[in-house]
Design a protein around this nucleic acid. Sequence first.
DNA 1: CCCCGAGTTCAATCTAAATTGAGCTAAAAT
DNA 2: ATTTTAGCTCAATTTAGATTGAACTCGGGG
Lengths: 182, 182
Amino acid sequence: MPDATILMTPKARDLLQKQERSASVVGFEEAVVDFFVDAADLLGVPKSVAVLYGIVFASPQPLSFADIQARGTLSKGSVSQGLRVLREMGAIKEVSAPADRSELFTPDLEMRRLIQRFLEQRLEKQLAAGKSRLGALQRALPNLEKSHAETLRSRLEQLQSWHEKARALLPIARTYLKLAPG
Amino acid sequence: MPDATILMTPKARDLLQKQERSASVVGFEEAVVDFFVDAADLLGVPKSVAVLYGIVFASPQPLSFADIQARGTLSKGSVSQGLRVLREMGAIKEVSAPADRSELFTPDLEMRRLIQRFLEQRLEKQLAAGKSRLGALQRALPNLEKSHAETLRSRLEQLQSWHEKARALLPIARTYLKLAPG
DNA sequence: CCCCGAGTTCAATCTAAATTGAGCTAAAAT
DNA sequence: ATTTTAGCTCAATTTAGATTGAACTCGGGG
């Protein structure tokens, strides 16, 4: 490795790497990161994960662990955990390294599947929980005095109706996602 | 008011009130509260608000501020703030008090409108923010070197495509909500 | 006019979750 | 075999946000 950077501390190398990226590239990356941070916030995904995904998404080349850490935005721990989460979700994939170097990550652009999996994980679990709660309510109802039972029965029905609507929405969304390009 | 409770401290009255509710009524309420707490958690709504709504929803009669506070689950501050939030959302409404007593609250069962408003507030804001972010990205693109621009352009397009899909989903959901009873 | 209690406000506190980084592990380099 | 380093783990810290409750406001009753 007859390379001047070998004499530098890792920190110095990182800084160099950072400065080498042109202002426009950095600016673009920042904008992408902001976009994903916003979206993550809506979906309840931790910010660090969104930042990480933004960095990978904004890079034309696959990035290594070190590359990402060199951005200086995230701690080693966050990078490690975040990459794991993203891999497990299928949001990024590792492209086999050209030579000896460590694994490189690039976004998995099958976003359709990604989003689908995400929705299903969250909603499906939620709907299952809701269903059992409604069951409990159903069972609690007969024990109430007559005067109360009537109003409450109708409210419970309302809850059930909404629950069903929500459940019906999942397949619709699924179908919808299959249409149109992307 | 030739009523024994008039001689009690407010605290004592509250406790009495609490004990008077039968076990089955309390149990029903708890189950309803749990249901809404679960749902709120998915939607990112504070737990105290969900509890509050659950209490109101589970009561066959409209409840006063004091009634709710008497449940002992929430502090005065939380009740006050929570009721305001729920009123602003249109999740509960005040029924005009029969005589001199303070205002009474009951769930506003026009859930369709409620849910619609909720979705639109969150998603609409999100989509607007996303749109401007995408604009920024679009503008940042031309400044990148040719070698990078191609890949990134296509990724950006992908982002835009998803953004459009999300936007298209809103009206679909709206239409869907109009159908079916509830 | 002053007092009392219902309800509001908001600074202080608590809570849950995210984030960090020191130390560990395992594998590559010498 | 030993050193070096990349990456993982998890206890400790930080942070963001929810919750509390003491001090206040305001309207009605005496």
